[in-house]
């Protein structure tokens, strides 16, 4: 099953490699990983998407908690949460395709953020499946490049990951 683990960690050099190293050393898989400092500059927040059965996820969270730099973590999938990913897609646009791409972007609530005579860049945020669906809907031959941030997430309601 897919899990989204949100981690608050010390904003120290090497903290990211401790997490990445843990996953490779113990053979866990990382589907995606995003990290950035928080409003408190001493802390970074990392969102990590991984897959595994319950036992593996339990070990992953325990091993992560054991890292000295990890302050706190939650598995977002344990409760109601919102998940968002940012994607930018550069698409080749021949004259007769431009309208179609534009309306497709609109349907998916994307924005066209760059236009050249032969290309569009579409920006889109949403849950990962929505971004997948957009990619599936576009003619693959027209896609020049796709860049995705990997999902990040936050729990709903008063519950949250903070100090």
């Amino acid at each position: 099953m897919r899990h989204i683990i949100s981690i608050l960690m010390e904003n120290e050099s090497g903290a990211l490699s401790r997490v990445a190293g843990l996953f490779s050393a113990r053979g866990y898989n990382i589907e995606s990983l995003t990290v950035a400092p928080t409003e408190d500059s001493s802390l970074s927040r990392m969102t990590l998407v991984t897959r595994g059965n319950e036992d593996i996820i339990e070990q992953i969270t325990k091993q992560l908690n054991k890292l000295i730099d990890v302050v706190k973590l939650i598995d977002l999938v344990d409760s109601a949460h919102i998940e968002r990913e940012l994607m930018m897609v550069k698409i080749k646009t021949s004259e007769h395709m431009r309208d179609e791409i534009r309306s497709m972007a609109e349907i998916f609530r994307g924005k066209i953020i760059d236009v050249t005579p032969t290309t569009y860049i579409v920006e889109m945020t949403g849950p990962s499946e929505k971004l997948d669906a957009f990619i599936d809907a576009v003619d693959p031959d027209t896609i020049i490049e796709v860049v995705r941030s990997g999902p990040t997430g936050i729990s709903r309601g008063e519950k949250g990951l903070y100090l």
């Binding site: 036992d55 339990e58 070990q59 325990k62 054991k66």
Partner: peptide, 11 residues
């Protein structure tokens, strides 16, 4: 003392 040792190999 180490929670990660618990149920690591044997439930």
């Amino acid at each position: 003392v180490d929670p990660a040792s618990i149920s690591k190999t044997v439930k």
